[in-house]
């Protein structure tokens, strides 16, 4: 099981802040493909992954990164702090 978190407009588009999933995805990109195949709202949120960032266990990562051993995946737009 893996916890998947969504922030900002990704959260709004998908319609929930987090969910717990059973997945066999090997990489972040595989997980995105699985999610996009589920429902239109996921397909809309992940339509342009170049506009998104991903964190694995609260560290920024790439979409090619493996998911083995990861407990928490977060998807969000580029950050706008400060």
């Amino acid at each position: 099981m893996i916890d998947v978190l969504y922030f900002a407009w990704v959260r709004e588009r998908i319609g929930l802040p987090r969910e717990r999933l059973e997945t066999s995805a090997a990489t972040v990109a595989d997980l995105v493909a699985e999610l996009m195949a589920r429902e239109d709202r996921y397909a809309a949120a992940f339509a342009d992954v170049s506009a998104l960032r991903v964190a694995l266990d609260q560290e920024l990562a790439s979409f090619a990164a493996p998911l083995k051993g990861v407990r928490e995946v977060a998807f969000f737009p580029p950050m706008t702090g400060g």
Binding site: P78, M79, T80, G81, G82
Partner: peptide, 11 residues
């Protein structure tokens, strides 16, 4: 770094 690497989002 706070602007681009701290996970905040402004609306």
């Amino acid at each position: 770094y706070l602007k681009s690497r701290a996970p905040f989002w402004k609306k």
